[in-house]
């Protein structure tokens, strides 16, 4: 029985797959091509969902209306730019749960966990993965931006962190 975190995929800002790794035993493996297709497809879906999300747009409208009323009363309020819609964040299915984290620069981290994991759990793990990425990938002089991640130390740290996390659950 697989527990905890099952897989990690990292997608660069152009929709290319730059890292993928599975952490459970007995998971069906995709071939490399399928992973690339999966990454590209997800990138597209994410872009569409970012356009769909209605909640933030309503907020923005309300903000504008608010500013109109305040400017008519003479208050010099600085117009605040609404937060951009974040798009797909969590996808739940019968067998797994997919958490997506989009960094400020457009790199996407996809964390596949089992269905028992809560939002908070996955957030903590995601944060740590992002920490490891910014330490052991971005500070590595031999890593070229937007290219596939081949960093031994990143692999090693990620493996030991996920193993520890999965065995503690």
């Amino acid at each position: 029985m697989n527990r905890g975190i099952l897989a990690l995929i990292v997608i660069n800002k152009a929709g290319g797959l730059i890292y993928n790794r599975t952490f459970g035993d007995g998971l069906n493996q995709l071939n490399t091509n399928d992973y690339l297709v999966l990454a590209g497809t997800f990138h597209g879906v994410h872009a569409i969902t970012a356009r769909l999300s209605p909640v933030k747009a309503v907020q923005a409208q309300q903000n504008q209306q608010h500013q109109h009323t305040s400017s008519s009363t003479g208050g010099g309020v600085v117009p605040s730019r609404p937060e951009p819609p974040s798009g797909l964040e969590v996808l739940e299915s019968e067998n797994f749960r997919l958490q997506c984290f989009n960094t400020m620069t457009g790199t996407k981290f996809l964390l596949f966990t089992d269905t028992l994991q809560t939002n908070a759990n996955a957030d903590v793990a995601m944060r740590k993965v992002y920490d490891l990425y910014s330490d052991y990938v971005m500070k590595n002089p031999f890593y070229q931006l937007e290219m596939p991640i081949r960093c031994e130390t990143f692999d090693r740290k990620l493996n030991s962190y996920i193993r520890e996390l999965n065995s503690s659950r």
Partner: peptide
Amino acid sequence: RYISVPKDMSQLNC
């Protein structure tokens, strides 16, 4: 600490 030397430069130590 944060450096992973690529395989084709394995002799390198920064």
